[in-house]
Design a protein around this nucleic acid. Structure first.
Length: 424
DNA sequence: TCTGGGGTCCTAGGACCC
DNA sequence: TCTGGGGTCCTAGGACCC
């Protein structure tokens, strides 16, 4: 039996989240910025029309922003994460066969539905999500994930589709493929695009017809799978329960240049704290800790510096104090005087489920104590504003910490920041 | 002056072994 | 100047994704 996938994708997701709670932004150009308010990560249609690119540094578009009265927002991941959960729960009403692919996208397996109904179903999904969450979505339907992605893009590109496009009818496929530049195909990145264009392959249809052996040669099995998917052969199945994470990372750019060891040490401790929290949320323990520090990448060579240090733990741990200890020690070892550091990070690897983590016979008492302490800290930080209980090693002032100057309130997850409605 | 963060998968090549 | 042939495991780096 042929499978049928729908890809539901939230339109300009972060911007749409802001608009749910600030309806006056409708029709006005809106940008959501990355951490540290550095570059553009979400754009309203009006901003796209102004020619502002995804990922563009804010300082490059200051003039356009001013001249066009663009509304600027810092990232509010608490809000976006919660809105995402609402959208996904709504999608779950339509089928249990759902893969949450990213914060703003999900694949649905429509296997059981009769073919004539796909577009109608897509419209119902769209209307329901809009009504229940306020978020506008586009729905693309195809016989493989790659084709569902393609359908979704076309649904967004052509307003007359109303944001829903069914490409399972194979007679429409050649046209759809031919009108799509090759770099817009899911799985084709900048590198592969250059290679394809040199070979005269410019659109999706030409890629669909490309020679298998040549594709295998220049882009390996992943490239071949993408081409097969364009032909309707399923290579990427619906993944309803993604395997547990292989690694957890917390890396951040500083708000300013950092030159002192004690500040870097603070940052490492703060990042280790966050990484350990994520680790415990997933009920995992880490066997390997890596830290890195680096200067500005855009700096000229002699002023550029990047160094990492990796530790293997005797037994996997999710204890913040253990991870802070290693992270700060790592920073001390790699620190080199005379550089201006711009970014640091803590990476946790060799993850194992917490309960399976082997532990020595002799410190089971310590283990229980450590776990109890972590549970208390986590529950306090869940109940009261995050960071209520912290570690002194992570510093108090944290003047190096990235700023979110233009962040909207956490409307849906924080009692103090609920939206206020006035009736008159 | 100002340029994000967090992932996955695959491949090539080295180390090591028989 | 010659200097086997595999296999496995691990790591670094490339490419891609949102």
């Amino acid at each position: 039996m042929k499978t049928t996938f729908a890809l539901v994708d939230c339109n300009n997701f972060y911007v749409s989240c802001e608009r749910v709670f600030s309806p006056h932004l409708d029709g006005r150009p809106v940008i959501v910025m990355s951490n540290n308010d550095g570059c553009v990560v979400s754009r309203s249609d009006e901003v796209k029309a102004l020619g502002i690119g995804m990922g563009q540094p804010i300082y490059q578009v200051r003039d356009i922003i001013r001249q066009n009265n663009v509304a600027l927002y810092s990232s509010n991941y608490t809000l976006y994460g919660d809105m995402s959960r609402r959208v996904m729960e709504t999608l779950g009403q339509f089928t249990p066969d759902i893969e949450i692919y990213s914060i703003d996208e999900a694949f649905l397996d429509l296997g059981g539905m009769p073919a004539a109904d796909y577009a109608v179903l897509g419209q119902r999904i769209q209307e329901t999500v809009k009504q229940w969450t306020g978020i506008p979505v586009s729905v693309g339907i195809g016989t493989t994930k790659t084709l569902a992605k393609l359908a979704n893009q076309l649904a967004k590109r052509f307003p007359r589709t109303g944001g829903v496009l069914d490409l399972t009818d194979s007679s429409r496929l050649p046209n759809a493929l031919a009108s799509t530049p090759v770099e817009k195909i899911w799985g084709v990145g900048p590198r592969f695009t250059r290679r394809l264009r040199r070979a005269g392959i410019r659109n999706g249809l030409q890629l669909h017809d490309a020679d298998d052996r040549w594709i295998r040669h220049v882009r390996g099995v992943m490239g071949l799978r993408t081409v097969h998917e364009l032909r309707g052969i399923t290579c990427f199945a619906l993944d309803e329960s993604p395997p547990p994470r292989q690694g957890i990372a917390h890396t951040r750019t500083f708000s300013r240049r950092v030159t002192r060891l004690d500040e870097l040490r603070e940052a490492a401790a703060a990042y280790a704290t966050r990484a350990a929290e994520k680790l415990r949320q997933q009920k995992m323990a880490a066997g390997v800790v890596t830290i890195f520090v680096m200067t500005n990448l855009f700096e000229a060579k002699p002023r550029r510096f990047f160094k990492t240090r990796t530790f293997e733990l005797p037994t996997p741990s999710s204890d913040t104090t253990v991870l802070i200890h290693l992270a700060t020690r790592g920073v001390e070892e790699v620190f080199r005087e005379g550089y201006e550091y711009k970014k640091a990070g803590v990476l946790l690897n060799s993850l194992v489920p917490e309960e399976q983590a082997p532990r020595s016979l002799f410190d089971s008492e310590n283990w229980v104590r450590s776990r109890t302490l972590m549970q208390v800290i986590d529950s306090l930080n869940a109940r009261y504003p995050s960071g209520t209980v912290g570690f002194a090693a992570a510093g108090l002032e944290r003047t190096w910490q990235a700023k979110f100057r233009l962040r909207s309130p956490r409307f849906t997850t924080c009692w103090e920041e609920l939206p206020v409605v006035r009736a008159s």
